[in-house]
């Protein structure tokens, strides 16, 4: 029987759960209570049967942690997930990024990762929705599609040998971001879920980038005509917006920032309930820490109430 050696403190905590007979060799997902916390240099196991995953290294046949975090075990693979780190991409992730540089047939995009991602000219949609090979003239007018400083939403398409990500925007839901504002949170706070494009009932769209960049904008319904509109896709013009629309966007931004500062997981229902809880306060009050705490506790109460009904 294989068993990971636990530090004394964790062992004491686990003593209760071990009695239930779940302490065996299968995939241990681990509840919130019995997770093994390790710090750099700490030996996880000396059993040579385990495989070395991310955040670990082998030293004299022992498996040692290299980051501070939670031990995760999938059958024989042991890895340590750091509690906070830069964004680690996976294929299919929805990300929000900022164009930093133009290169030959490519844009460099800052997605808060360990290096800038690449958006190839061949992986964007041309204005007007025409499907054809990109020619030299397209290459010359790349800056009219995306210029430095523009924000884009995109999907991680593949990875290069050195770990750099390649993005694509070949879908009407991806592309240049307008009519809103950006909120930055930790990437660990945004879990991968079914949908990262959220339409709130208050008339605000939210793009939850898995990399921790969140785009909050005025709701603009996606219509099939937009795809064929030669101007719309890469326009730099914001749509006309009323005072109340601006305020709603600012409120949603501050709500997400509050969830971020309170170290909460950020997902659709968290935003919806925290928004409802925030309506008692003025928008600028949401930046105060006591107000943020009150909103988060009220939102979790609302969430629990909704779950029991």
């Amino acid at each position: 029987m294989l068993e990971i050696s636990l530090p004394p403190r964790a062992q004491a905590r686990r003593a209760g759960t071990a009695a239930d007979g779940d302490d065996d060799d299968d995939v241990d997902m681990g509840g919130a209570g019995d997770r093994q916390l390790v710090t750099p240099g700490e030996t996880i196991t000396t059993d040579p049967a385990f495989m070395r995953g991310h955040g670990t290294f082998t030293h004299e046949q022992a498996l040692v942690a290299s980051v501070a975090g939670v031990v995760e075990r999938v059958n024989k693979l042991v890895s340590v997930r750091p509690l906070k780190s830069r964004y680690n991409g996976e294929i299919g992730d929805v990300v929000v990024g900022r164009i930093t540089e133009l290169g030959p047939k490519r844009w460099k995009v800052d997605i808060k990762g360990r290096q800038d991602a690449v958006l190839l000219l061949s992986s964007i949609n041309l204005p007007g929705g025409v499907q054809r090979r990109k020619s030299e003239s397209d290459e010359l007018q790349m800056r009219s599609f995306f210029a430095e400083g523009d924000l884009v939403s995109a999907e991680v398409q593949s990875f290069f040998q050195d770990g750099g990500a390649s993005l694509q925007t070949r879908n009407i839901k991806y592309g240049k971001l307008r009519n809103g504002s950006l909120v930055m949170v930790h990437s660990a706070q945004i879990k991968r879920s079914k949908s990262h494009f959220i339409v709130l009932s208050c008339g605000v769209d939210v793009v939850l980038g898995v990399n921790g960049y969140v785009w909050v904008s005025k709701h603009v319904p996606i219509t099939p005509e937009m795809e064929s509109d030669p101007e719309g896709l890469y326009s730099n013009q914001n749509e006309p917006m009323t005072e109340s629309e601006r305020e709603t966007i600012a409120r949603v931004c501050n709500v997400i920032a509050a969830l971020g500062r309170q170290n909460c997981e950020i997902h659709e229902s968290a935003i919806v309930y925290a928004y409802d809880a925030s309506l008692d306060y003025a928008v600028k009050e949401l930046l105060k820490v006591p107000v943020q705490e009150a909103i988060v506790s009220q939102a979790s109460a609302l969430l629990r109430q909704a779950a029991t009904q």
Partner: peptide, 11 residues
């Protein structure tokens, strides 16, 4: 460095 989640072989 540990807070940033950068792998190190020890403290």
């Amino acid at each position: 460095m540990i807070d940033a989640g950068i792998p190190m072989s020890d403290y």
